[in-house]
Amino acid sequence: MAGMDAVSDTPLLPQASTLAERVDALFFTLVGVDVVMVLVLSGLIVGFAVHYRRGARVNRTTDAPETKTEIVWSLGLLAVFLAIFVWAAHLYVEEASPPNNALEIHAIGKQWMWKFQHQNGRREINELHVPLGVPVKVVLATQDVIHSFFVPAFRVKQDLVPGRFRTVWFTPSRIGRYHLFCAEYCGLDHSRMRGRVIVMEPAEYEAWLADVSAEPSPAQGEKLFSSLGCIACHGAGSKVAAPPLAGIFGKPVPLKGGRTVIADETYIRDSILTPEKQVVAGYEPIMPSFAGRVNESDLTRLIAYIKSLSGEEGRP
């Protein structure tokens, strides 16, 4: 997975959305306020402590007006806090309301991957391609537990809550590849539920969207099917008892233990990476895991091939 994280030629935390610079402006103002306050308060404390240290010959008679000083200080503090509050709330409210013309992309989080579907139906896994300068609204749903869609470079974050749709929106402002993290703890491989957001020129994005040939072709998948050795067990006439794959896509599959799942992309993907988890009823869990031996694009090619064995391209 290490290669997936490589984000080339960008600073540690780029400002890659129109929101990013505005959040940073507020953030660094706050850092400034914090630094000034820490310096003033620790200056007072250290200064008083040293100046009035025991044994120092200093004037210690005092009649400081306590209540008055306290009131002035708290009102001053309150004013600073309220100013920050208004600034932050203003930005927050804006963040919550996507413009009407935003490009809508659907996302599904599941343990432990991200799935995206673009408007023309093109899908991708753990990668999200978006056009530069166009407001993008991502509609978020989760299949299992709570996840959180977090793109630090955009300064956006939104939890995915089971049984609810949530949206997050941003306008990318910088070409590049950026981290996508799951920010809400979601179980075992939470820290590996990472992906990339790829910001492209709008024209390039359109081309990418339209380029169906880039969609994994069944032919490429078929080659992998034999080179990886899948065919030895799942191929027609194989002597090993493995379930046949022709015609299964989109159909319910009975599992050992009595449950049934629909053989969709996710199920096929899981069966390749963690075959022992969902074993088809009547078969032994003898298939080895291919995790680490196939990468994401190989996976999508294999899935495309298995889809093609069902005669039609995908299910409704």
Binding site: V31, I84, W87, H90, E95, K157
Partner: peptide
């Protein structure tokens, strides 16, 4: 704490 109470920054 003030920083994380500021909504828009907390989102990040």
């Amino acid at each position: 704490g003030i920083t994380v109470a500021a909504t828009a920054v907390d989102v990040h």
